[in-house]
Design a binder for these strands. Sequence first.
DNA 1: CGAGATGTTCGGCT
DNA 2: AAGCCGAACATCTC
Length: 265
Amino acid sequence: MPELAEVEFQRKRWDCGIRRKVLRVDAHTEKRIFRDGEGAVLTERLSGAQLLGSEARAKLMLFRFSKAVWMGVHLGMSGELRIEPPDFSPGRHDHLVLFQKEQSLVFRDPRMFGRIRVHIGEEPPSWWTELPPAILSEEWTMERMREFFRRHGRLAIKAALLNQTMFPGVGNWMADEILWRARLAPARLCSELTPKQSAALWQETREVCRIALETVAVDYADPPSDWFFHQRWSRDGVCPRDGLPLETATIGGRTTRWCRRCQKS
DNA sequence: CGAGATGTTCGGCT
DNA sequence: AAGCCGAACATCTC
């Protein structure tokens, strides 16, 4: 389930392992999860290391350990972090287990689109420090967004929202939520937006991120009940504003739902 | 049983 | 040549 706020929620699940030592590591190093081939290094280095802290940015998490070990976790489509008892026996999809005295930290991912990467060094890795500006940061300006739209004029706005360089952390449901709030049809091209529509999109993007982080990221609660979110899953979903049945199409390679009446095409 | 699922990457085409 | 699009990845659920 991992988009911005869900990733932040999952990251915090391992917080009880902070300042505690990893006694033993069990990793399915041959799986796609470890496609960078760093599984062996990770297993060897993490044994005896202490988990020092973690952060989440966009859809990526970074776990910092002693012995100069950094571990990046991307949850893909079906990844999750869990806490299990110290004597946990990993199942088929539990690709990484860090055994501690008090509990086990587990990474599970049935579809294996997730990814675990490793960095050894005193400083954090470049794949972390070079992430684009977060949507809720000061650098994420409207001008930057409009410049992106100029460069990608023939791209559908829905596809643009899924671009992780411009909209880091936004996934399929967040993109549909943002477009619904900004009253823009998903197939509109980036070059077609009026300044007013760009401004609305910019603002709603930040608003959806902000509220999602205040609700979903805190206790995995669903977003507020009047959100589009709740309608877009069901085949018979209707627009929360006017009750019209939602449209469905594939845009930007993903299932997209919108209201024909209130989202301007 | 087939279709689709909250993601990314690659290769081909324009 | 940049940039867009569809396919592929692997498994589960409806």
